[in-house]
Amino acid sequence: MPEGRRRRRRGSTLTTRDRLTLVGMVAVPTFLVVAFILVPTILSILLSFTSWNGIGGLDRIQYVGLDNYVNLFTKYRPFWPALSHNILWLAFFLFVATPLGLFFAVLLDKGIRGTRIYQSVLYMPVVLSLAIVGFIWTLQYSPDQGFLNNLFGTTSRDEHFIDWLGDKDINLWAVLVAASWRHVGYVMVLYLAGLKAVDPSLREAAQLDGANERQTFLRVVFPVLRPINIVVLVITVIESLRAFDIAYVINRGKNGLELLSILVTNNLIGEASLVGFGSAIAVVLLVISLGPIVYYLVRSVRAEAE
């Protein structure tokens, strides 16, 4: 918030023309966001209480109360696997990919020669579309033609066969490695920016006090990174909930790769859609997403207030 607000109400100095200009500047973007995002979101929530195949007039929509939710929680086989996969995805990102990104950032922050090149390489996957990432990793994982199985001698003709994408106990992990390939670079760059902002004198002071590198990082640097940690946390949670493209490209999110976003898509598009049911899954996804979103906003507002 501009400081001006606390001193006096700046608004009072605006002419009518200025006010109209401001209204115009706000109205167009707001209209777009409301019409294209907010209204559809609300309509999706309403649709989740109905049964509709998405075809024909709106009069074909039937109100069914909580039926969709009851089916979802009690009968729909892919739901609980999908939810647990999303949670596993989140856990993997939180405890493996994100710390790895932080680790790389710390290494690159040492300012050794060639930092830029290492950074470019590690960040490169982030600019690729997930559809392409999915294809690139299929080339590594494919059962008989893929790189890994040919390297390890584990194709389906060999004695020990590893079915990276087909075995439902393995394929989620294989996909998580591919997804982390992108996530690590993303997180690394965020932390790198944060680390650059750490006042060098803080470190020097700690080192003068006899702290070793690890202690300096844990006691001095990491606490200063707190704002970045929160951003990274929110991004990690949101990315895990939004996870879609890679699994969708690999096998349409079946057979061990079920994810909430894919269940929504599979129910909403396709030859016959179950719009009400798909919307109910979307609402579950929405409710879960609101957690981190609200947390983030509350924090931002507090930061504003300070």
């Binding site: 087909g166 075995d167 096998n251």
Partner: peptide, 12 residues
Amino acid sequence: HQAGALGRTWQE
């Protein structure tokens, strides 16, 4: 049948 059908496309 060939093992690992679920990770293989019919083209392969």
